[in-house]
Simulated assay, not measured.
Amino acid sequence: MVRLSVNINKIATLRNARGGNNPDLIKTALDCERFGAQGITVHPRPDERHIRYEDVYRLKEVLTTEFNIEGNCTEQKFVDLVLAVKPAQVTLVPDAQGQLTSNHGWNTIEHNRYLTDMVGAFKKEGIRVSLFVDPLIDMVEAAAETGTDRVELYTEAYASHYHQGFELAAAPYVQAGLAAQRAGLGLNAGHDLDLENLQYFAASVPGLQEVSIGHALICDALYYGLENTIQQYLRQLAANPNQQ
């Protein structure tokens, strides 16, 4: 079964909107684990507009599932944080300063030497590394040359085109998944996956090991409740669409 890592950035956004500690980010993360999530993801940005660096240290102390930290390794503050916390996984994302949300993957050809150095630095400390990439075979193949353990496929294009034809929308991801398998890479995915499009994606993309979902899951939780929502996402990951 594909593992679900819950991105709790939006919980931090809500907390920060009023100050104080409501909602309690740490309690929410622990509840996500208790409700069945197999991992917790955070994406601290330099302006700390949602996840604060102190949150990352506190989460590391209490989480019992896989801890995944996303961010841009061109920011030395981020690199220092990851090396200090030593999460199970670091996902390297090429965000620009002030970027609202991630919107593209690494050019692993152009930045191959740099990424090789960064991947090596994290792996030396026993941290599994995943590179955020677009669903392009050449980017997956070049990612493998860096020594990364996994790639995370950027799934916004799949989500945007899902209702226009799910087979066509998933096709580049199927090919990217096959490329990752040939290269010996683990495979993650994330961005705009939700209760409507997740089941088909998880069943179609070969070798998929983990999805990271935040915005849609938290939005769904406003209607369904957090525990029920996590259970619904887990059922989508476990379901076979051919049996529906």
Rank of each mutant, 00 (worst) to 15 (best):
217 L>I: 09
10 K>R: 15
237 L>A: 08
228 N>G: 02
32 C>D: 06
2 V>I: 15
230 I>G: 11
37 A>D: 13
149 D>I: 00
212 S>H: 10
74 T>W: 14
94 P>T: 09
6 V>T: 08
209 Q>H: 11
166 F>S: 08
210 E>M: 11
229 T>L: 06
159 A>T: 01
59 L>Q: 04
63 L>V: 07
100 L>V: 15
4 L>H: 07
189 A>I: 01
66 E>P: 03
59 L>V: 05
38 Q>P: 03
233 Y>W: 10
236 Q>I: 02
242 N>C: 06
52 R>W: 11
118 M>G: 04
180 A>H: 04
205 V>S: 04
190 G>T: 03
220 D>T: 13
87 P>G: 05
12 A>G: 11
150 R>Q: 07
27 K>E: 15
238 A>W: 07
26 I>P: 01
198 L>F: 12
52 R>H: 12
208 L>P: 01
141 E>C: 13
128 R>N: 14
25 L>W: 03
211 V>A: 08
131 L>W: 07
195 L>Q: 12
60 K>N: 13
94 P>R: 14
203 A>N: 04
176 A>F: 02
120 G>D: 09
75 E>V: 10
86 K>S: 06
114 Y>L: 07
227 E>I: 05
61 E>Y: 06
193 L>Q: 07
153 L>Q: 00
203 A>I: 00
85 V>G: 09
81 L>H: 09
120 G>N: 12
45 R>I: 02
106 W>C: 01
119 V>A: 11
167 E>R: 13
206 P>C: 03
229 T>Y: 08
110 E>I: 02
174 V>A: 05
210 E>T: 09
203 A>Q: 06
36 G>V: 00
74 T>C: 09
121 A>Y: 03
22 N>P: 06
81 L>N: 09
87 P>Y: 06
126 G>D: 11
86 K>W: 04
78 F>D: 07
172 P>A: 02
88 A>N: 15
37 A>C: 08
161 H>C: 08
144 A>F: 04
76 Q>F: 03
99 Q>L: 03
231 Q>M: 11
54 E>Q: 14
54 E>M: 10
116 T>H: 11
212 S>V: 03
194 D>T: 03
241 P>Q: 00
11 I>H: 10
12 A>R: 09
207 G>P: 01
223 Y>W: 09
173 Y>D: 00
33 E>Y: 01
29 A>N: 04
201 F>Y: 12
97 Q>P: 08
96 A>C: 10
39 G>N: 14
232 Q>F: 13
126 G>W: 08
211 V>D: 11
211 V>P: 05
123 K>P: 11
8 I>P: 05
68 N>Q: 07
81 L>E: 09
26 I>T: 03
164 Q>L: 14
110 E>Q: 13
16 N>I: 00
221 A>D: 12
15 R>L: 05
126 G>C: 08
80 D>M: 10
185 L>G: 01
